[in-house]
């Protein structure tokens, strides 16, 4: 292989090397620029919200009931409502989404029909949430006669989160190395045993992350609950019983949307404060997801 590369060729090569280095630098510049723009946007948005909203945050704001026709006092009923909505949504999404994801990954196979279902799931995951709101209104609120209620909100938000949960569950399961699956089957475990004992424990963190993130996102969505579960003028009564399920519930995104729409009646400080609380809530949820991930990763590699 010791062919002689003549001088002309070598010089051409050097020129090309220099050009390649220049174009590398250009791309690096573009990438850095894009990163800076993104970063500034995020900092701008979060910064604005924090600057305008943080001053309203204090214990009373978080724990008190609203007063004087919502123009004063705290937002505890809305926080509680959002938590209730999220909790119930998770309750519905967990079994249905996880079982659906397992089915899609392990049992559905690859027929044309399954392909159709898969692309439908992807489309549903990208469907604007107001569509889910209208569907919930038509089906849960009106046809099932649940009325504007916590239960209708749960079902609507669950529908909204399901596609993402199914898709993330399926991909978490598919990400489990084939070698582990083969190892289980080669031991004579049944398919079900292999899924339960080997696949699911290895996919658990991915599945949990998907559930937490998508319910967290659902918690911040106003349109689905606008039409199915939301109420603005909270009476402030907070007792919890079975009746609570049939009643509409105040919550953070709705409070924001409605408070803003009232145009000037509601003090800005309350609106920005609500913004901070909602953002904080979603951040907390995401932190939870990150923790789940980190812990299970550490567990699987622990010595």
């Amino acid at each position: 292989m010791a062919t002689v590369i003549d001088k002309a060729k070598r010089e051409g090569l050097e020129a090309r090397d220099a050009q390649r280095a220049r174009s590398s630098r250009r791309y690096l510049g573009l990438l850095t620029g894009a990163a800076v723009v993104t970063f500034l946007l995020i900092v701008g948005i979060i910064g604005t919200i924090l600057i305008k909203g943080l001053p309203s945050i204090n214990w009373a704001f978080l724990s008190d009931l609203p007063r004087e026709g919502m123009t004063a006092g705290g937002i505890w009923p809305m926080i509680r409502g959002s938590l209730l909505l999220m909790f119930g949504t998770m309750l519905v999404v967990l079994p249905v989404g996880v079982l659906g994801g397992i089915y899609m990954a392990e049992y559905a196979g690859e027929s044309r029909f399954v392909g159709l279902i898969r692309s439908s799931l992807v489309s549903l995951a990208a469907t604007p949430s107001i569509v889910y709101g209208l569907f919930g209104l038509a089906v849960f609120v009106l046809a099932w006669k649940l009325g504007t209620s916590l239960m209708a909100g749960w079902l609507t938000l669950a529908l909204f989160s399901l596609p993402v949960v199914i898709i993330t569950t399926e991909s978490a399961i598919r990400a489990v190395p084939e070698s582990l699956v083969e190892g289980g089957l080669a031991l004579g475990l049944s398919k079900g045993q292999t899924i339960r004992k080997i696949v699911l424990p290895n996919a658990a963190s991915g599945i949990a992350t998907g559930i937490v993130l998508s319910t967290g996102r659902a918690a911040g969505e106003a349109p689905p609950i606008l039409l199915t579960a939301g109420i603005y003028y909270s009476t402030g009564q907070l007792e919890m019983n079975l009746e609570t399920l049939r009643k509409p519930v105040a919550n953070l995104p709705y409070h924001l949307a409605e408070g803003y729409r009232q145009g000037g009646v509601i003090p800005e400080s309350i609106i920005w404060g609500t913004c901070v609380v909602l953002m904080g809530l979603v951040l907390l949820i995401n932190l939870g997801a990150i923790l789940v991930r980190a812990r299970s990763r550490a567990r699987s590699l622990q010595s």
Partner: peptide, 16 residues
């Protein structure tokens, strides 16, 4: 069958 006929693979695949 797979209980009677065990298998070891090319790449070690211990379960995590």
């Amino acid at each position: 069958l797979r209980r009677q006929v065990g298998m070891v693979f090319q790449k070690p695949n211990p379960f995590p």
